[in-house]
């Protein structure tokens, strides 16, 4: 166990536990956009930065990646921290002016858009948090989504912007997307996502269409469970 101070409060934490978790467990809220309990943190959004004092040195660190250390003093709302958060939100508001999620979050933080930043007009709401990419790769295990290009041109999507043969239509990306950039549409027996339309499987008991056939085939292959056994929806299982 290590002892540290967060926002004036002395707390104890297991060594190696990240600051973000330690703060939250102690009722101190730190905003994030790219952290998710099921995924490894990447430190992409930069909202969770905090200022730490270690000995005589003060520095800004990423609380979702920085492990708690004995004796450090953490300030989650210092001027430097708030300045970073303000600009991160203002950058994102300019990038995705149509995103109500970002707008509301900024409003809650008391941050207004910076008028000097011309809002993007492409209508996209992707904030490059990479939760979808991580979920697709680390949780689902198919890596159908990724990034292309770099810098200002960085773009999220499937390789060559074509429907991905690897995509199984599971919808994890749409589920995890915080700004609803990735969406999924359905008819009774189809599901469309990431430029690909999937045939849905009807439950062999109740007849309800419940999952893409490709997803069930993928799960069967991965787990060795017979495809027949997977043809029953969760309500009838």
């Amino acid at each position: 166990m290590v002892k540290l101070v967060i926002d004036g409060k002395t707390v104890q934490a297991e060594e190696g536990k990240i600051l973000l978790t330690v703060a939250r467990e102690n009722g101190i809220e730190i905003p994030t956009l790219c952290s998710h309990e099921t995924l490894e943190n990447t430190g992409a959004c930069r909202l969770c930065v905090v200022e730490i004092t270690k000995g005589k040195r003060k520095k800004i660190v990423t609380s979702c990646l920085y492990a708690a250390e004995d004796g450090i003093v953490v300030d989650t709302k210092s001027d430097r921290v708030l300045k970073v958060r303000r600009f991160v939100m203002q950058f994102l508001m300019a990038r995705c002016p149509t995103s109500d999620v970002i707008r509301d979050m900024a409003a809650n933080m008391g941050i207004a858009p910076e008028t000097r930043f011309k809002p993007s007009e492409d209508g996209k709401t992707c904030i490059f948090c990479r939760l979808c990419v991580k979920a697709c790769e680390d949780v689902v295990g198919v890596s159908a989504l990724g990034f292309a290009f770099r810098g200002v041109d960085k773009a999220l999507g499937t390789p060559y912007r074509e429907p991905s043969p690897a995509c199984i239509g599971c919808g994890s990306c749409a589920y995890i997307c915080p700004t609803r950039q990735i969406t999924m549409s359905s008819t009774e027996n189809t599901r469309s996502i990431c430029g690909k339309t999937f045939k849905m499987k009807a439950c062999s008991v109740c007849g309800r269409y419940f999952a893409p056939e490709e997803q069930l085939a993928f799960i069967s292959k991965k787990t060795g469970v017979d495809l027949e056994a997977l043809s029953v929806c969760s309500s009838c299982r």
């Binding site: 430190g43 990038r95 904030i127 810098g151 960085k154």
Partner: peptide, 18 residues
């Protein structure tokens, strides 16, 4: 730098171009 930023984190990707 705006073109050569990897684009991973917000301040660099968005901030430099602003």
């Amino acid at each position: 730098l705006a073109k050569e930023s990897c684009g991973k984190c917000t301040p660099c990707r968005e901030g430099i171009r602003r």
